[in-house]
Design a protein around this nucleic acid. Structure first.
Lengths: 215, 215
DNA sequence: CTTAGGCTAATTGTTAACAATATAGATTGA
DNA sequence: TCAATCTATATTGTTAACAATTAGCCTAAG
């Protein structure tokens, strides 16, 4: 694995998890010293982060970790609504029975987790994404997968870490996931898509409410 | 404008227009000499092209211009269908009257062009994209705009240049554009979205037919 | 006291030399 | 003759020094 990739993944996770705070100026000299590499590979990593919109870069000025932006966040959720709805349509047609079975097991595991650690939101984060990723993969459209997983989801994860104190609703999400899974099992793409869109629309409404409360 | 950006735009256009053929190996030393810059900025440009999926890069091996891939092309059209449908829904709500008027003028200009140069497909290319871009902008979702214009459309343009000999159907496209415009003018987002999805679905079917014929 | 101008320091953009890696051809052995 | 290994070369990955640009500060004039 090349140093550029290492630096990219390291910085990406640090930004997503909030170890590097939004708005932080990223100085190439400092960072390269901290990460123990030259400025060349680091610059490559910063460019990649820029094209993923995780940092803002201004020529001759520098790079800065993106700040939380309510407008963009809502834009991203508008996109997720359509794209993951599309993923459901395609997944209902294209997922293999084995894939569906795996998704079912995932759901069972999650349900046990939710029942055991009821209310611990931070665990819900990853399990929730697992479910979504599995369906996205199942759609069998590599461009759709990249758009969602490589372009949009980093921001979604970043937002979730920032608003981690916010009460999640694992039981409700669990129920909605189960409904989506059943629709997929019945190969009813139209229904699965509708449920997924509604599922994400609910999340978007929570997001809007959260934004309104924090301002 | 920094050298990286210059190189990026130069190479992107060259690839899109077919001046650099698909499958061409891009050697850093050669290219930097031709473009008259160092390898550093050139590498940055290649990285950007890679993240836009216009070149494939393998560590320690090099970069190669993407080859025409029917499967990916269909994936992209599947995405366009949904995303531009979405753009229509949003544009019907959010476009200003001035924007709509401008779109109408665009359409008039195009109609005159089509009537004058009936059948000259290569002119149709850009004017067609103008129409689509205008609506995408009108949706007022910066992430949607970036996804479509920066990630997907380069490939679409590349494909169009490659299949330029294929007979376009300017009159039909013109008619469909007009219908979409009218729906937008009536602020009927649902209808506009449906027409747009169908418009792109038609293009996708042509694409599939074209692929079948060339194999 | 305010503002315009220039100067200094810090930071990014760029280049060229060096190190590491992979490919292709030659060589040797079975 | 074929296969496997080794070696040489070409190419990429990395580093460190150099050039260009920006932002902040200080000075001085109005």
């Amino acid at each position: 694995m090349t140093q550029t990739e290492q630096a990219y993944h390291h910085l990406l996770e640090a930004i997503v998890k909030g170890d590097i705070l939004p708005g932080t100026r990223l100085r190439e000299a400092d960072l390269s010293r901290e990460l123990g590499l030259g400025r060349g590979p680091l610059r490559d990593a910063l460019h990649r982060l820029e094209s993923r919109k995780m940092v803002n870069k201004v020529p001759h000025v520098g790079a800065q970790v993106v700040d939380f932006n309510p407008v963009e966040m809502i834009e991203i959720y508008e996109l997720r609504e359509r794209l993951e709805g599309m993923a459901c349509e395609l997944a209902a047609e294209r997922m293999s029975d084995d894939d569906l079975a795996a998704l079912g097991e995932l759901l069972t595991t999650h349900r046990q987790f939710v029942e055991k650690h009821s209310g611990e939101a931070y665990i819900q984060q990853d399990t929730d994404l697992d479910f979504h990723f599995h369906i996205i993969q199942g759609a069998g459209n590599s461009w759709l997968t990249q758009l969602l997983c490589d372009e949009l989801y980093h921001r979604v994860r970043m937002y979730r870490y920032q608003s981690a104190h916010q009460k999640a609703r694992p039981e409700r999400a669990m129920k909605e996931h189960t409904q989506i899974f059943e629709a997929l099992s019945n190969r009813d793409g139209e229904l699965a898509a509708m449920l997924m869109r509604r599922h994400i629309a609910t999340a978007r409404e929570n997001l809007i409410r959260y934004i309104a409360n924090t301002q």
